[in-house]
Amino acid sequence: MQPGQASRLAEWISRYGLLLALVLLAGLLSCLTPNFATAQNLLIVLRQISINGILAVGVTYVLLTGGVDLSLGSVVALTGVVAAGFAHPGEYPVILAVLVGILAGSGCGLVNGLIVTRGKVAPFIVTLGMLTVARGLALVVSGGRPVSNLSSSFTVLGGGAIIGIPIPVLILCVVAFASHVFLKRTRPGRYIYAVGGNEAAAYASGINVTAVKTLAYAVCGGLAGLAGIVLAARITTGQPNAGIAYELDAIAAAVIGGTSLSGGVGGIVGTLLGALLMGVLNNGLDLMNVSSYWQQIVKGLIIVGAVWFDQKGRR
């Protein structure tokens, strides 16, 4: 190979490394199990990643500012329970349940953001606190038991489909598209990258760093609220102990997708690919009937491997 070709190959890998890993994995799974590469199964994979996908898109905002949000799983539970409380048949219009859920989520995010920016407390600690508080609130609101008997107009958000495409998948698509445009094309989006890339320089450029960071946490919380609604609708009940450790999957998806934990680098496209990689892995291992002990090992190795591969391409 000529040197020019080699460098072009390296550049190609650096841009599409993750996509390549995903294609390789999918190809491998199609060979190993006939049930993987069917249209129906692929729709199922999309449906299964929708909740993690929405959370991962949300946490991407926060990661881009150089922060982190560990409270997502608990916020999912809280908002699911709260929304479910407004979703019993014949009580309120379903839009109210959705709005209340999203508001509850962005409220949690707003509190996170304000304490991080005004109180100058490390995001790790603030959101760790919120992890416990939101879980506690979810238990208080629900009295420790699931909120069930939900109206079908609510549960359709999790179980329904429009022209064959599951509604959670459509929600994820809308959220991801809007977030991509927001981050890449709007002023606040640009500021999020600037703050994460170099907070001091952003401040010295006259950017209201406090507002930008708070916004990122609030959006992240609001999307966690949306994910909580979709989850409650999908499992037809608001579960106070749902969503445990969901934040780790969401952060993993974003980081696999190339979003830097130190901020300023990354984006929604990568995050979606990361979520997809994790979803394909889960689905494929189940299809192949791999024992649950080995599944954990394989998942861990492939996640680290994918990021390694991606990093290598970038260098």
Binding site: N35, T38, R47, I235, Q239, A242, N282, D286, S291
Partner: peptide, 23 residues
């Protein structure tokens, strides 16, 4: 036919069942 954990969790059980239906 198959046995697998869904960790007591409803959402995980749904995903597992969907995958079983495929297999």
């Amino acid at each position: 036919l198959s046995e697998q954990t869904a960790e007591w969790d409803r959402a995980k059980a749904m995903a597992l069942m969907e995958n079983w239906i495929q297999s």
